[in-house]
Design a protein around this nucleic acid. Structure first.
Lengths: 213, 213
DNA sequence: TATAGATTCTATAATTGTATAGATCAAGCA
DNA sequence: TGCTTGATCTATACAATTATAGAATCTATA
């Protein structure tokens, strides 16, 4: 039984993985569109042109599928955010890069991210906690950079860092819900505008985010 | 049959209304917590201590209940926003008042607003459209005020008004989803911080939102 | 108190949805 | 060619869910 050549096993595994990806991708698509509870396993199977029961070869329960989708919805997020924080640059620059890094996956992994944002609350407690920890790490990245800006004098010392962080994440996460209906701007443009708004506000005498006192 | 005294009819109607309010309130509560599709009519009945089938005396379908809850979730929103727009004041002041007016119902009608924001997409097309029109009126209020600010020179002429509007509404609407877990600030405080952020950004040399060039 | 109308109940039909068991099929290898 | 394994299928059990019908109960008042 353990006489398989390494190569054949690799080929087989990668094909399995590829197929599993297709399945989970379909689940993500339908979850994103109809919501977790609004999605029947039948609906996912229809998208794939396969039988409802066959899905259970790839996941043990609908809930497990949601967990998988949510997990992928966070993949890379934390890493990207922490890389920005640990990298070089002024806090307001880092904040701009955090926003861009946070918005990018909305384009590339739209369905996964949408499901993560809108449906993770339906996960069973255990996995919700696990995934919640990731969210908090992202939040901490934003808050940390804002606090660094306060410390180095580039950000108003009266700022409520946590509230500002929640505001920024709120505007970023909201994009996923209006993006489908309004594709007139590309994501870089949105990120840039958001960064400018957060750094300088709307007022007429906006200064570039890199300006330091 | 039309010999009822006006008074008795009023009393009866008001009781009916009061009871109907209790029913819809429970529906809003459960919809808010578990989502529309995650809510069974049984769950609503449990909250009320009554039988599942009895709910159908008050609404003809679960969908109709959602529509009712969503409708109440928008009640007053548009009126308040349009009042601010039509009132006096500098655009950035109006924007601050729009934010405060938009956040207030999150406190007072929490469940209704949460359902409106998170569940309206599950409404049947007809009522979703009807309610969507209300959303657009609110959006227009924000956008209008921003455009007014650009016109009078108090807001950066390079601003993408629609994008800024979406950002502001995004951060405001997001409040409903973190509010329950973080009650450390009162809503006025949140509104004030948001207004300051939107007007002047985070940068250290923040100027008061009323400052005009 | 008897009645009318409002409200809630019981019972149930009809459908949908999740999940399991075991058969079948296809591809690659002995 | 026939075996093995992975993938999908058929069939179905079982529970939950929405909604309807009609009986029972309650409340106010004639």
């Amino acid at each position: 039984m353990n006489t398989h050549t390494p190569r054949s096993r690799l080929v087989r595994n990668s094909r399995v993985l590829r197929r599993a990806d297709v399945i989970i991708d379909a689940a993500a698509r339908v979850f994103a569109e109809r919501g977790y509870h609004g999605t029947s396993t039948q609906a996912i199977a229809n998208v794939l042109g396969m039988r409802q029961a066959s899905l259970y070869y790839y996941f043990p329960s609908k809930e497990a599928a949601l967990e998988l989708v949510c997990a992928r919805g966070t993949d890379g997020f934390v890493e990207a955010a922490e890389a920005v924080v640990e990298g070089a640059g002024a806090p307001l620059d880092k904040l701009a890069r955090l926003i861009a890094a946070h918005l990018a996956p909305i384009e590339t992994k739209h369905d996964y991210v949408k499901v993560f944002i809108n449906e993770r609350r339906y996960l069973p407690t255990a996995s919700r906690r696990r995934i919640g920890r990731k969210s908090r790490r992202i939040e901490r990245c934003f808050e940390h950079v804002i606090l660094a800006g306060i410390a180095d004098g580039s950000i108003d010392p009266g700022t409520d860092a946590r509230l500002a962080m929640l505001a920024v994440l709120g505007m970023c996460n909201a994009v996923i819900n209006w993006r489908a209906a309004d594709q007139t701007r590309d994501m870089d443009r949105i990120a840039a505008e958001f960064a400018k708004l957060v750094a300088s506000g709307l007022n007429a005498r906006r200064r570039p985010p890199t300006a330091n006192p």
